[in-house]
Nucleic acid binder design. Structure first.
Lengths: 213, 213
DNA sequence: ATAAAATGAATGAATACTTATTCAGTAATT
DNA sequence: AATTACTGAATAAGTATTCATTCATTTTAT
């Protein structure tokens, strides 16, 4: 009998698991202390592991941070794609609603994650990698949003609207509402952000307003 | 001839001048390297002065950064107040237009300054001072924007609109457009941001659209 | 089965390097 | 001469990275 390759039984923890654990610890620390004050000692401690562990799994701190941002980006995309899939196939307005509401689900729009996004954006000018990944976050999203808008505009005969400009406006509002959640004093919550966005959609697409409540 | 008191001739430079010079150097460095990698050596070098100069004028690095953010906030406020004052007293729509356009003037919305704003926002969760100053940036602005909107809504009989929610939406869009300027790959410029905002206002206030071109 | 050997995950002390802050001394201004 | 802005070397604290060693798990040999 020939020895068939074992199904990847790992030593103390599978590499993927450890890496993910360290990324989570990094997010925790960045949210708690900021990107600048996050040290490898903090990360490894938060993960309950030893000093050298990050270099073992990620080779360098820089690499850990890059991978952390990539992880955030992937999670963001999964979230909106999942939301979109759940929306009814035959109802454009509901699809648009689902897509834009997904930005305020607790998985992606909690203060911890938002804080990390802004931390990376704040360094985007000086770090090309951060800038690139941040751009990538929006490419597919923007494209799909724009087609949805275009089709809805056709369907409702909203002739006055310039679609690309509106796409930009909506994504901008979405990000700005994230800032509000992060910064605002008087408990501006995810649900408040969603309300603002929905009222904007109702005003813009009056014939479809029912989808935006 | 009697020696008339010299008009405030300071030693090597007036304290206010030196402080401002160091704040400018800090902004320069934060934009270039990020908040985390900005060292006092960088700042003092950018100012063409010696190592210890920041501690001499600001006592600590922390204090320099706080004052830098306060400076940015003050500059932002001056800018929109000045813009508002230039707008015609008797034309609400033009006032609204001027206020919102001011966010995209080169003084405040260039990549350097935006990069610094985002750097501070990224640390706002862990640094109460940054959070507070960031909130203060918006208090007066929001209040004035809201009264303008309310009066314009009355004037035009735009009955369907919920003013507080719209105020939130507009400021969010304004900040989100800043992010676009900072991050976007395909040269999204200040003028593009302004266009997006203006098209939003035309769509919302059709009777006043002339003011938003 | 069982034990010995091999593998590679994890540790943590040591290293080399940065960096904020201090402060004794220098020099411009009054 | 007195004052005080400014300098820059020294200091003290921190931090990313390395690597010899430990130890859990799997493989191989018997």
């Amino acid at each position: 009998m020939t020895a068939i390759a074992k199904p990847q039984a790992r030593r103390r923890a599978a590499k993927v698991v450890r890496r993910r654990q360290l990324i989570d610890a990094a997010i925790e620390s960045i949210a708690k202390r900021g990107l600048g004050d996050t040290t490898l000692a903090h990360v490894s401690q938060a993960a309950g592991l030893s000093q050298g562990i990050v270099n073992l799994h990620f080779a360098s701190k820089e690499n850990l941070l890059n991978e952390t941002l990539k992880h955030l980006r992937a999670e963001y995309e999964q979230n909106w794609r999942a939301a979109l899939e759940k929306a009814p196939d035959d109802d454009l307005a509901s699809q648009l609603s689902a897509l834009l509401r997904s930005d305020y689900m607790s998985t992606v729009a909690n203060k911890k994650k938002l804080s990390v996004w802004f931390a990376f954006w704040g360094e985007a000018k000086s770090r090309p990698t951060y800038k690139k990944i941040s751009q990538e976050r929006m490419t597919d999203y923007t494209e799909i949003l724009e087609t949805l808008l275009e089709r809805l505009i056709n369907e409702g005969g909203y002739s006055e609207i310039n679609t690309p400009s509106m796409t930009q406006g909506i994504t901008a509002m979405a990000d700005g509402l994230w800032l509000n959640i992060l910064i605002s004093a008087s408990g501006f919550k995810r649900s408040d952000a969603e309300k603002v966005m929905m009222q904007y959609l109702r005003a813009t697409f009056p014939k479809h307003k029912d989808a935006f409540y």
